[in-house]
Protein backbone atom coordinates (compact mmCIF):
# COMPACT_ATOMS: atom_id res chain seq x y z
CA UNK A 1 0.00 0.00 0.00
CA UNK A 2 1.43 3.38 -0.87
CA UNK A 3 2.24 5.62 2.03
CA UNK A 4 -0.48 8.05 0.96
CA UNK A 5 -3.09 5.27 0.83
CA UNK A 6 -2.08 4.20 4.32
CA UNK A 7 -2.42 7.74 5.66
CA UNK A 8 -5.81 8.15 4.02
CA UNK A 9 -7.25 4.95 5.46
CA UNK A 10 -5.83 5.72 8.90
CA UNK A 11 -7.30 9.23 8.70
CA UNK A 12 -10.62 7.70 7.67
CA UNK A 13 -10.63 5.52 10.77
CA UNK A 14 -9.81 8.49 13.00
CA UNK A 15 -12.57 10.59 11.45
CA UNK A 16 -15.06 7.73 11.88
CA UNK A 17 -14.24 7.68 15.57
CA UNK A 18 -14.64 11.45 15.71
CA UNK A 19 -18.06 11.20 14.04
CA UNK A 20 -19.25 8.73 16.68
CA UNK A 21 -18.05 11.00 19.47
CA UNK A 22 -19.71 14.06 17.98
CA UNK A 23 -22.92 12.11 17.36
CA UNK A 24 -22.98 11.03 20.98
CA UNK A 25 -22.48 14.64 22.11
CA UNK A 26 -25.22 15.78 19.73
CA UNK A 27 -27.75 13.33 21.15
CA UNK A 28 -26.78 13.37 24.80
CA UNK A 29 -25.60 16.97 25.09
CA UNK A 30 -27.17 18.31 28.32
CA UNK A 31 -27.89 21.79 26.94
CA UNK A 32 -28.99 23.04 23.54
CA UNK A 33 -25.68 24.87 23.21
CA UNK A 34 -23.85 21.53 23.22
CA UNK A 35 -26.10 20.22 20.51
CA UNK A 36 -25.54 23.27 18.31
CA UNK A 37 -21.79 23.02 18.75
CA UNK A 38 -21.93 19.33 17.87
CA UNK A 39 -23.89 20.13 14.69
CA UNK A 40 -21.26 22.70 13.74
CA UNK A 41 -18.53 20.11 14.35
CA UNK A 42 -20.42 17.72 12.07
CA UNK A 43 -19.98 20.28 9.31
CA UNK A 44 -16.28 20.34 9.84
CA UNK A 45 -16.14 16.55 9.84
CA UNK A 46 -17.98 16.60 6.53
CA UNK A 47 -15.27 18.83 5.08
CA UNK A 48 -12.53 16.49 6.26
CA UNK A 49 -14.36 13.44 4.92
CA UNK A 50 -14.98 15.08 1.57
CA UNK A 51 -11.30 15.90 1.34
CA UNK A 52 -10.35 12.30 2.23
CA UNK A 53 -12.71 10.91 -0.39
CA UNK A 54 -11.11 13.29 -2.89
CA UNK A 55 -7.77 11.83 -1.91
CA UNK A 56 -8.99 8.24 -2.15
CA UNK A 57 -10.73 8.59 -5.48
CA UNK A 58 -8.27 11.09 -6.90
CA UNK A 59 -11.14 13.26 -8.24
CA UNK A 60 -10.69 16.92 -7.63
CA UNK A 61 -14.49 17.37 -7.68
CA UNK A 62 -14.79 16.24 -4.07
CA UNK A 63 -12.33 18.90 -2.97
CA UNK A 64 -14.62 21.52 -4.43
CA UNK A 65 -17.46 19.92 -2.51
CA UNK A 66 -15.37 20.27 0.63
CA UNK A 67 -14.91 23.97 -0.09
CA UNK A 68 -18.65 24.38 -0.65
CA UNK A 69 -19.45 22.65 2.62
CA UNK A 70 -16.97 24.93 4.38
CA UNK A 71 -18.80 28.01 3.11
CA UNK A 72 -22.19 26.66 3.95
CA UNK A 73 -21.16 25.09 7.27
CA UNK A 74 -19.99 28.46 8.48
CA UNK A 75 -23.26 30.14 7.48
CA UNK A 76 -25.16 27.41 9.31
CA UNK A 77 -23.10 28.02 12.44
CA UNK A 78 -24.05 31.69 12.41
CA UNK A 79 -27.72 30.87 11.82
CA UNK A 80 -27.69 28.37 14.68
CA UNK A 81 -26.01 30.89 16.91
CA UNK A 82 -28.71 33.45 16.39
CA UNK A 83 -31.36 30.77 16.96
CA UNK A 84 -29.60 29.55 20.06
CA UNK A 85 -29.83 33.04 21.57
CA UNK A 86 -33.56 32.75 21.33
CA UNK A 87 -33.77 29.44 23.20
CA UNK A 88 -32.92 29.07 26.86
CA UNK A 89 -30.65 26.11 27.36
CA UNK A 90 -31.91 25.29 30.84
CA UNK A 91 -35.62 25.04 30.09
CA UNK A 92 -34.79 22.69 27.24
CA UNK A 93 -37.09 24.55 24.89
CA UNK A 94 -37.79 27.92 23.31
CA UNK A 95 -38.79 30.71 25.71
Amino acid sequence: MSFLGLCLTLAMVLIAGAILAVAWRLLAGPSSADRVIATDMLGLLAIALAALVAGLTGQQAFLDVALGIAVFGFLAAIAFACLLERTSATQEGPR
Binding site: A23, L26, L27, S32, R35, V36, A38, T39, L42, A46, L49, A50, V53, T57, Q59, A61, F62, D64, V65, T87, E92, G93, P94
Partner: peptide, 26 residues
Protein backbone atom coordinates in the same frame (compact mmCIF):
# COMPACT_ATOMS: atom_id res chain seq x y z
CA UNK B 1 -38.08 18.63 23.15
CA UNK B 2 -38.86 19.55 19.56
CA UNK B 3 -35.51 21.35 19.19
CA UNK B 4 -33.63 18.21 20.27
CA UNK B 5 -35.60 16.14 17.77
CA UNK B 6 -34.78 18.57 14.92
CA UNK B 7 -31.07 18.55 15.68
CA UNK B 8 -31.02 14.75 15.98
CA UNK B 9 -32.79 14.57 12.63
CA UNK B 10 -29.98 16.79 11.37
CA UNK B 11 -27.63 13.92 12.21
CA UNK B 12 -29.70 11.53 10.06
CA UNK B 13 -29.56 14.03 7.19
CA UNK B 14 -25.82 14.43 7.64
CA UNK B 15 -25.34 10.65 7.39
CA UNK B 16 -27.40 10.53 4.18
CA UNK B 17 -25.10 13.15 2.73
CA UNK B 18 -22.12 11.03 3.82
CA UNK B 19 -23.62 8.03 2.00
CA UNK B 20 -23.73 10.04 -1.21
CA UNK B 21 -20.18 11.24 -0.57
CA UNK B 22 -18.84 7.74 0.10
CA UNK B 23 -20.56 6.30 -2.97
CA UNK B 24 -18.99 8.90 -5.26
CA UNK B 25 -21.70 11.45 -6.03
CA UNK B 26 -20.18 14.86 -5.34
Amino acid sequence: TALQAVLAMGLVGFTTALVFLMFGAP
